[in-house]
Design a binder for these strands. Structure first.
Lengths: 256, 256
DNA sequence: CCGTATTTGTTCGTATGTATT
DNA sequence: CAATACATACGAACAAATACG
């Protein structure tokens, strides 16, 4: 069957954008001009443009015009341990693998005690509780990720009381747990999920509230030697500005 | 500022869906009924429903009605080597880590010789060529992933001529390269990118052509001991039906 | 700073086409 | 074949954001 008219127009706009006829960052013709050019009604033009918006090709701005989306250089997040010694013992937070040429800042943690049900990866019983430490993370002043780490309340009971404090744990919660309780992380498992942002994420990341940009959710469960989970760290970030990298076995250093 | 009316209606629909008032798989009221209930025009109702569609909450079907999206049980793709011996030498294709309780089938590979520029991860010179082997993969009869593996043409020249054959390489290209040329994969690097489907992907995966469902692209570069890349395997699949799993260090076996 | 023009955003009305029941 | 329900398309009006003299 023949495509609808707004689809044909969207296809044409798409190919013009990809041919560079409308350069990145540049302005699309106004709706009025497109109406005349394609001899279509305003609503049909708007349907076509909306399709291009959903494909991430253009971004309309009320009062200004519709602009071709600029290329974004995604930030690379390395999920495996850095350096050549893959078997090393230096467990790291996701945050610590950020490129150093960026200005990374975090909000003060928001600490709560919650039911264990929200962190099923920790495999705690029905009545158990967890400490959650939530942070907003910024990169070069722009919102970059939301991160929440869940610890079994048990760790606090056993002496790791700083997990309840609202200040940052320096030089890191992993080494704190090692010093305070002798708990060493021997590895972790990362689960990556792509989904639509919830309203809070859409607000924080300044995304359109219509699910246009997906969210990447990384759920890292870290384990100690006994196989018991130590923590669950959930990191969410917009999927269009980030990519993941991880290595298995012996690989050469990245040179790009 | 007050939300637009279609947004308010969409919010209301959303909360009703989440409260279970409209159960999963069930039918939303018709546009006519919603028009009467919210005392809004049909276009406004349609704008509200479209928002819910973009959020993945509902799926309209012409002539039938609008249905609340069913929960998807995502397929888990493990990107690290299986089993407890993380340092083992059994390199695997992504395909081989599929759960065995599914019926996994692949199309006959489409083999082409192409310019090396399309596989920059292989770090080949300007005039070099690569062999590309492309497969469509199905799970339980449904399209599941598209996979293309690129090998330096050099490997064929050195004797791995079966890379050019249009039949499947049994029991796997990795062991074939080991037998034919003594090339052992010592590790790989996976890069994960989330993006909008291109038209070919939208067709194969039977996705809406409007970028509603994101695509996960996994680019696996495998290396030999010398650090030289052996192959690049690019796997794409719909991001809403799949999740990734990978382990670092010592982790207990999955028990769920 | 103000007022006007421009441009996109929202909302209504209406008609017709296409898919399903 | 008729009725129902969503899809496409046109027209019109006003609102809100921005640009500009």
């Amino acid at each position: 069957m023949r495509d609808a008219r707004y689809q044909q127009i969207a296809d044409d706009l798409r190919s013009r954008i990809e041919r560079g006829e409308y350069p990145r960052g540049g302005k699309l013709p106004t709706e009025k001009e497109l109406m005349e050019y394609y001899d279509a009604s305003r609503n049909t033009i708007r349907d076509a443009v909306r399709l291009c918006v959903n494909l991430g090709l253009v971004q309309p701005q009320a009062g200004r015009g519709t602009f071709v989306t600029e290329e974004i250089n995604p930030l690379v997040i390395t999920l495996t341990r850095g350096g050549p010694s893959v078997g090393g013992e230096t467990a790291q937070y996701l945050s610590e693998v950020l490129p150093t040429q960026h200005d990374a800042r975090s909000s003060v943690p928001r600490v709560e005690v919650r039911e264990a049900g929200i962190a099923p990866e920790l495999r705690l019983g029905a009545g158990a509780t967890v400490v959650s430490r939530h942070q907003e993370r910024y990169l070069d002043g722009r919102p970059w990720s939301l991160q929440t780490t869940f610890y079994p309340m048990d760790l606090v009971t056993r002496g790791a009381t700083r997990l309840l404090g609202p200040d940052n744990i320096e030089p890191g919660a992993v080494s704190y747990l090692s010093e305070a309780l002798g708990i060493e992380e021997t590895g972790w498992r990362d689960r990556v999920i792509v989904r639509v942002p919830d309203p809070a994420e859409a607000t924080f990341f300044q995304l359109a509230d219509d699910g246009r940009v997906a969210i990447m959710e990384i759920r890292r469960t870290a384990f100690q030697a006994s196989g018991a989970p130590v923590r669950l760290t959930v990191t969410t970030c917009p999927a269009d500005r980030n990519e993941l990298l991880f290595s298995t076995g012996q690989v050469p250093a990245e040179s790009w």
